[in-house]
Write a protein that binds this DNA or RNA. Structure first.
Lengths: 231, 231
DNA sequence: CGGCGCGTTGACTGTAGTCAAATAAAGTGG
DNA sequence: CCACTTTATTTGACTACAGTCAACGCGCCG
């Protein structure tokens, strides 16, 4: 977990993160209050019910947002990609646990100071609003998946979502996915057990829809067929 | 479906809706572009995949946001209460169907003009952001419920959510709830069938947790017990 | 009075959960 | 580089819970 001051000019997500709403001059205000920090795979970035004292842009790596329900099951509510925004603005508590799925680099800001900068720069606020609305869409799309009655559509829908996410151009699906998350995490997103997720994958493979290549990547052989299963 | 110009001074949600971010002078800008309109119970306010040309504040009544999945099942993603905001800013399509659960009165704005007003008044943008973040929290909370493996916690959690929603003061649960939605709608929110919802309610009643009073309201006799079931 | 929408209850079935074991992959230390 | 441990994933047998199909009760409105 090293920590260092900002070098926005070298930032790989400079044009996609929320700070892209600011020009280089204005960005200095953020650079003054922020610092980068790395987190190792598996590390907790913030715990649920932590005081919401910081927010951050994810520069590199993958983060999952989750809550532990009272049965002790982890329920994943979102996966954050590079350029994504972390933290809960305008609230006193974080609400979710943030865990590094892979090694991560973050650009951290004290929340109150970040909000002050937002206040001075409406374009930043507007960009964060746009991002939050997208996040709301994603959350609702995930809720729809979770609510499906059978496991097939859930897993198929998740795969298609991942394929869409890892596809460079806008719409269309990647033919080959490197799964960012474990079977357990897939289950925790969909409200299924590890075993059920695994069984659905073997079923898809036997049906000729996908080919598993190692544990963490697969080829989508029949996108239309998968789409049909997803419903 | 009558339609009429705005009379903000008489507006019952004046202090809670997003327009409360503006002073009475600034509010005139909104009043100029908006108009109120009523929708009867069961009416579609906008359909999914409608062009996103309008947004609105809900003045009175209850609205559900839903999508039809490919099985033909309706999946409800949110319930909007008075003072809530309707419509999808910054997007070309609405994404969900909005249906009046009860007779409704809305304050409608053309989306592009509303966004122009936001642009001129950062306080409005910020208030909408705060509201959207709350909505995101609610969506994720619902996703957590839906993801539970057994029906008991789902229904118990929904009841507690409704009890919290219809309780005047901040936290704490109302002892008596007038259910705003049908059994079918509850099922559509939770990913359960009507029958399962119904059976859970009778189970709760037999366990002394609740008392059904007519079809659409119930008393919560043992909030702690219900909370225990919700987990 | 009869039809209709909504809700409840019952009997049966199917699917996902649970428990348990085998297998594959990845990391560890010599 | 190889033996060994640890972890992730797959598979199997069994069970439990929710879904399905069907009937019934109730209030409402024509």
């Amino acid at each position: 977990m090293s920590s260092s001051p900002l070098a926005c000019d070298d930032c790989p997500v400079r044009d996609h993160a929320v700070c892209a709403a600011l020009d280089s001059q204005q960005r200095l205000e953020l650079a003054r209050i922020g610092r980068t920090r790395t987190f190792e795979r598996g590390t907790t970035i913030f715990a649920e019910d932590d005081a919401s004292t910081a927010c951050a842009t994810l520069i590199a790596g993958l983060v999952k947002l989750s809550t532990i329900d009272t049965d002790g099951n982890e329920r994943i509510v979102a996966i954050v990609h590079p350029a994504g925004f972390l933290g809960r603005l305008f609230a006193t508590t974080t609400g979710h646990r943030a865990t590094a799925i892979t090694d991560c680099r973050l650009c951290l800001f004290p929340r109150s100071e970040f909000e002050a900068v937002m206040h001075g720069h409406p374009a930043l606020t507007e960009r964060i609003l746009a991002r939050t609305l997208d996040e709301l869409d994603r959350s609702r799309a995930l809720a729809m998946l979770i609510g499906r009655h059978e496991a097939g559509p859930k897993v198929a829908g998740l795969l298609l979502g991942l394929a869409r996410g890892s596809c460079s151009d806008g719409d269309g699906y990647a033919r080959r996915i490197d799964l960012p998350i474990s079977r357990g995490d897939m289950g925790d997103m969909l409200g299924l057990t590890i075993e059920t997720v695994s069984r659905q994958l073997t079923r898809f493979e036997r049906a000729g829809l996908i080919t598993r290549m190692g544990l963490r990547s697969l080829a989508i052989d029949d996108p239309a067929g998968l789409l049909a299963v997803a419903g």
